[in-house]
Design a binder for these strands. Structure first.
Lengths: 213, 213
DNA sequence: TAGATTGTTAATCGATTAACAATC
DNA sequence: TAGATTGTTAATCGATTAACAATC
């Protein structure tokens, strides 16, 4: 049990979880660092190192039981404790998340969405009520909200994040495409920059064709 | 000029580009590794190392001209050469990308979207025509498409990726939430797992409150 | 010129890989 | 027991940081 787990390891945990969930569904009951490494493109060594950050999930000479490993990692991520989220901005992206994204599988309950569109306010999207954005401050004051999902226009991002943070929201999942680097105290901000991912792929694509030429 | 640029450096380039674009808009004309590092939370050393992978963008004793640096990085990413993309699946997420995502800024032209919904086929979403998914093979055969954006249901992901790859598509930007690890030759797959990002934040959120308790 | 800041080399740090004794 | 595979320590590799001469 290491004192401090590196961010690299933490960022691999969701991948492990995903793969193990898949294997469990496929009926695979047993695995080993070698087997898992092959499936995931990692070395057996790295996998054993990673798992040993949290104390032995495995059994010498046998390997790992898929179910135990999955629930062990799930527990390291804290998934048995459900946190509460609200989506702020029910445009296309907000709706996509509300309707398609599996918050529960990530240990979150999606309690409500907020929007300014009078045509949306009062409706529900797949069991999630859409409330008036004007009522957000009152809502945050009276409900425990752990995470605010920002899917509203860029220009409101900063102020909304600041207000949410001051109202006790502890995490901001930010899809607005701008970096929120205001002083939010110890509110954690996870900036999702889809463009980073496409730009990176673009680099490799263009590089690849350059070598051909 | 290093022989091989590490993936770590490449993944930082979009962040540099974003920040420099912002600074340019704000009218900042000049910067230094120290200044930029402070703005971005990186060390001056690292920034100089990163930039020197591509040959000096700066001037000793002066620093970097923001515009030059931005266009230098833009050029490293290959943004002057436009690639072509199509979105496959015009549900909420697909529409969110078509309508809100700035493909042009990432060096892509969004040529078309594909869906099976007869109510959508034939319409246009912000200048992007929505075509019948049944015509996708014919389209790929007759148009150069560099990247397919997968925003369709999970179950079609693998087959669609395979078909696209065989039809000459060189990159798959995959939002379906499953890892596509079929043998796609040298087609590059960029899997976007939004859940990874939320799970990671969840880990830190839960950890933070544990320490409080 | 003097001051500032790069480009680049050297030192440190951390992460990955290899090796192997422990043990199921 | 013999074979397999972990947990863990040691070795390697790469990435970040520090230092400093070059130079604008």
């Amino acid at each position: 049990m290491k004192y401090r787990i590196s961010a690299n390891v933490i960022r691999r945990l969701p991948r492990y979880l995903r793969r193990l969930t898949l294997m469990e569904r496929q009926g695979v009951e047993r695995t080993s660092s070698g087997d898992l490494g092959e499936r995931m493109g990692l070395t057996a060594s790295q996998i054993r190192q990673d798992f040993n950050c949290f104390g032995g999930f495995g059994q010498q000479g046998y390997g790992y039981r898929v179910g135990d490993l999955r629930s062990g990692i799930s527990s390291v991520l804290g998934l048995e404790r459900t946190l509460t989220a609200v989506v702020i901005g029910a445009g296309n992206l907000g709706r996509a998340l509300i309707i398609n994204f599996n918050f529960a599988e990530c240990g979150f309950e999606l309690a409500a969405a907020f929007d300014t569109d009078p045509g949306l306010v009062g409706t529900a999207l797949r069991d999630t009520p859409v409330l008036d954005a004007a009522d957000l401050p009152a809502y945050l004051a009276s409900h425990r909200v752990d995470v605010a999902v920002l899917t509203l226009p860029k220009k409101y991002a900063r102020d909304t994040a600041l207000a949410a943070s001051r109202a006790g929201v502890r995490g901001i999942w930010n899809f607005t495409g701008i970096d929120i680097d205001a002083d939010l105290g110890d509110t954690i901000v996870e900036n999702v920059h889809l463009s980073d991912s496409l730009l990176t792929m673009g680099y490799y694509l263009r590089g690849a064709s350059k070598e051909e030429a």
